[in-house]
């Protein structure tokens, strides 16, 4: 290689800057976790007395259980439907060459460039015009408007690297369309499907602006947190916040572990 235009000094500076910015991203998360272990009703730093009493309260609170249950139901349904829709959406986005594809690509990504709060309000009007009563069911629909395009984008990255002649080869060797899908397309695209599903779940689990206007009388965890933040502090805010962070981390860890075990056999075969 020719001489690197950037010297060693610049390299170190960039690395240092990156570390600082990444740390900056985790400052507020750390703050929430710290606050959740504070005993006081009003947060003060340094923390005078540590306690886990707010966690105990949360564990026994029926309203917390309701909130979690609502959020979980919404997120699970969003995941299921989004993955189904986005799988075919991503094939149309990246796999097949068809007239109108360029337009389709742009239209599908359009919701991502939209302020979610405005989208939520527009949906609220839409539901009222259609005469649909808003509840957590409508929230599933609302979340999907924003999440399906993201999942399509994530899956498309995998689909782009998929070699369509593999499908042709399977087809040529006698496989039906369904067999091609089951034996070739799905197994090869499965990493994209899994990452799409994880993103769908967690983005729905944490979504606030769309839930705010589409859940009606039901309430998700982020909505409740927001209401408490704006109207008045309670130590349950950092506690529940820390809990949702922990559950997201736990899910990621779990998926990662499963992937490691399942993937070990696979990777042995398909070393790219």
């Amino acid at each position: 290689m020719r001489s690197e235009p950037k010297g060693r000094g610049a390299r170190t500076l960039i690395a240092l800057w990156t570390v600082c910015v990444v740390a900056f991203l985790y400052v507020p998360l750390l703050a929430v976790v710290l606050a959740s272990f504070s005993r006081q009703r009003y947060f003060q730093f340094p923390i005078a007395a540590w306690s886990t009493r707010w966690y105990e309260k949360a564990a026994h609170s029926l309203s917390v259980r309701d909130l979690v249950w609502t959020s979980l139901s919404v997120a699970l349904l969003v995941t299921l439907f989004s993955v189904l829709l986005a799988f075919f959406g991503a094939l149309a986005f990246a796999r097949y060459d068809w007239r109108g594809r360029k337009l389709y690509q742009r239209l599908v990504l359009l919701p991502l460039f939209f302020p979610q709060a405005v989208l939520g309000l527009a949906l609220l009007l839409w539901f009222s015009v259609l005469g649909v009563q808003t509840s957590w069911h409508t929230a599933v629909f609302a979340h999907m408007i924003w999440i399906v395009p993201i999942v399509i984008l994530i899956m498309s990255i995998q689909v782009y690297s998929f070699d369509p002649t593999l499908e042709e080869a399977a087809y040529d060797l006698g496989a039906s369309r369904w067999q091609v899908l089951r034996e070739v397309t799905l197994p090869i695209l499965s990493p994209g499907l899994v990452s799409g599903a994880i993103f769908a779940f967690l983005l729905s689990w944490g979504n606030f602006p769309l839930s705010l206007f589409s859940t009606g009388a039901d309430q998700t965890v982020p909505e409740w947190l927001y209401a408490k933040m704006v109207s008045g502090y309670t130590p349950m805010v950092p506690t529940l916040g820390a809990l949702t962070m922990a559950s997201a981390a736990l899910l990621l860890l779990l998926v990662w572990l499963v992937w490691q075990t399942v993937g070990r056999g696979r990777r042995r075969l398909a070393r790219r």
């Binding site: 507020p28 998360l29 944490g206 947190l225 933040m229 950092p238 949702t244």
Partner: peptide, 19 residues
């Protein structure tokens, strides 16, 4: 960088309030 995206925006902003 991507991980915090999976946590609700208002929880993260609330963290800044605490800071």
């Amino acid at each position: 960088v991507a991980l915090p995206l999976l946590i609700s925006e208002n929880i993260r902003l609330f963290g800044w309030v605490l800071v």
